[in-house]
Amino acid sequence: MFDLSQATWRKSTRSGQNNGACVEVADNLPGVIAVRDSKCPAIGAHVVDRHDFAAFLADVKAGSYDL
């Protein structure tokens, strides 16, 4: 389990106005990015290596996924 007590959460700029269905990101943690559902923060977060998350975002921006 990763300690997220120092995480500073912010709403993703891509979440838009989806009736409260927002993704929150914490990028102030050493070496990792944490992602959670803003409606259910108590259920936890996905913690991803910073390099792997950057690669994922690059793939999304390149259109590699059918989103």
Rank of each mutant, 00 (worst) to 15 (best):
I33C: 06
D3Q: 11
K11M: 09
V60D: 01
N18I: 10
V47S: 03
Q17D: 13
A58L: 12
D59M: 07
W9M: 14
M1D: 12
R50S: 14
S12V: 11
A55I: 14
A42V: 09
T13N: 06
S15N: 06
T13H: 03
L67H: 08
M1F: 10
F53R: 07
C40P: 00
V47G: 01
S5F: 03
V47F: 05
A34L: 04
A34W: 00
R36T: 06
P30H: 09
S64A: 14
K11A: 10
R10F: 00
T13L: 04
W9G: 08
D59T: 11
P41R: 04
V35G: 04
S15R: 05
D66P: 05
K39Q: 10
A21R: 07
L29R: 07
A34V: 11
N19R: 08
F2I: 11
A34R: 00
V60I: 13
Q6W: 04
A7H: 04
M1Y: 08
A62V: 12
S12G: 08
Q6R: 15
V47H: 02
Q17M: 11
F2K: 09
D37V: 10
L4A: 08
G31I: 09
E24C: 03
A62F: 01
E24M: 04
A26N: 03
R10H: 05
R14V: 09
S15D: 04
A21T: 06
G31Y: 05
V48M: 06
V60C: 09
S15W: 02
T8V: 15
R10M: 07
S5A: 13
D27Y: 01
S12W: 04
G31C: 08
D49A: 14
A54S: 13
A21P: 00
R50K: 15
G20D: 03
V35L: 12
A34P: 02
V47W: 03
D52S: 13
D52E: 13
D66Y: 03
D59W: 00
C40L: 11
A54H: 06
S64Y: 00
R14I: 11
A45Y: 03
S12K: 07
H46V: 15
A42Q: 12
K61R: 14
N28S: 09
D27T: 11
W9Q: 12
D27L: 02
P30Q: 13
D49Y: 01
F56L: 13
V35N: 04
I33D: 01
G16I: 08
Y65S: 15
L57E: 13
T8F: 05
C40W: 05
R50N: 12
A45K: 05
D52K: 13
N28Q: 12
G44I: 07
D52P: 00
V48P: 00
L57Q: 13
V23S: 01
T13F: 02
L57R: 12
G44L: 06
K61A: 13
K39M: 06
V47Q: 02
R10S: 12
K11G: 07
V48Q: 02
G31T: 09
G20Y: 02
P30S: 14
A54V: 11
G63F: 05
S64T: 10
L57I: 15
R14T: 10
G44N: 06
A26L: 05
W9C: 10
V47I: 15
V23E: 00
N28M: 06
D27V: 06
D52Q: 15
C22I: 14
V48K: 00
K39Y: 02
H51K: 13
Q6P: 03
A7S: 07
